[in-house]
């Protein structure tokens, strides 16, 4: 069974069609990057897949569960790390992780184990008792992803996970994202082409709400007739605009 399958997934806001009959399949354990210029429909797609926005028409199935008729089961298997660092600023790192474990209904002993496990995996031990609001952008982003993993999601949505980070922090986070590959299905949105190329098993390019192309980074480059991924992306998007 595919991890995600969208069936003519559409979202309209009055006259604007933000996502237009999207047909996308994501395989189990795959890391798929959703690429597109601003307004391409990436965020709206993620919002629909995570139950934040109801589609105007069409449907999507996450591990076979419909986002329309089985949203409870869908919520139980997904996690989101939003673009903006979504942490509780006056809570410590440890308390933020415990909060996420608590809202997912874990018992007290499990909460403790979860916090210890994720603190170790993400190297958060040294800042565990610091308030999240006082951390640097890189640490906050790390915490944000760790919070998303508390529930052991089957499908993880990472929205611009390294936006605004310096090269070192980005490289560290890439390592953490790579470590997730194969363990869960990851949908990544990013504006950084090198990030998409370095991390993705496959890439899906969207333009004006429509899916233009899907393929491995190598296939995308071959399709565009260039060996540079960013150039390939530009060519494909420009071609679609004609």
């Amino acid at each position: 069974m595919d991890a995600i399958q969208t069936v003519k997934l559409t979202k309209k806001y009055r006259d604007l069609t933000a996502v237009d009959a999207l047909e996308l399949t994501v395989r189990q354990g795959e890391l798929l990057s959703l690429l597109g210029v601003n307004g391409a429909g990436k965020t709206t797609t993620i919002k629909m897949l995570t139950g934040l926005t109801r589609p105007t028409s069409g449907d999507a199935f996450l591990n076979g569960k419909s986002i329309l008729t089985d949203s409870g089961a869908v919520k139980a298997m997904i996690a989101v790390s939003p673009q903006e660092t979504a942490v509780a600023p006056n809570l410590t790192v440890r308390e933020n992780l415990a909060l996420m474990a608590g809202v997912h209904g874990f018992a007290k002993a499990q909460v403790k184990d979860k916090v210890a496990d994720l603190s170790g995996r993400f190297g958060l031990g040294e800042v565990a008792d610091k308030r999240a609001g006082k951390l640097s952008g890189g640490w906050q982003r790390r915490l944000s992803i760790a919070m998303a993993l508390v529930s052991d999601p089957k499908i993880l949505f990472l929205d611009e996970p390294t936006l605004g980070l310096d090269v070192l922090a980005r490289s560290e986070l890439w390592g953490m994202i790579r470590a997730l590959k194969g363990k869960m299905t990851v949908i990544l949105t990013t504006h950084y082409m090198e990030e998409a190329e370095a991390l993705s098993d496959r890439v899906a390019i969207m333009k004006s709400g429509r899916l233009m192309l899907t393929g491995t980074p190598a296939e995308i480059k071959r399709h565009a007739g260039t060996d540079k991924f960013d150039e390939a992306f530009v060519r494909i998007v420009k071609e679609a605009a004609k």
């Binding site: 995570t50 139950g51 934040l52 409870g72 919520k75 139980a76 997904i78 996690a79 989101v80 790390s81 939003p82 673009q83 903006e84 660092t85 979504a86 942490v87 509780a88 996420m100 809202v103 997912h104 209904g105 919070m147 998303a148 529930s151």
Partner: peptide
């Protein structure tokens, strides 16, 4: 912030 959006995707 995105905090509430994050929580909207949980079973709360």
């Amino acid at each position: 912030s995105s905090f509430l959006q994050r929580l909207y995707t949980t079973p709360l």
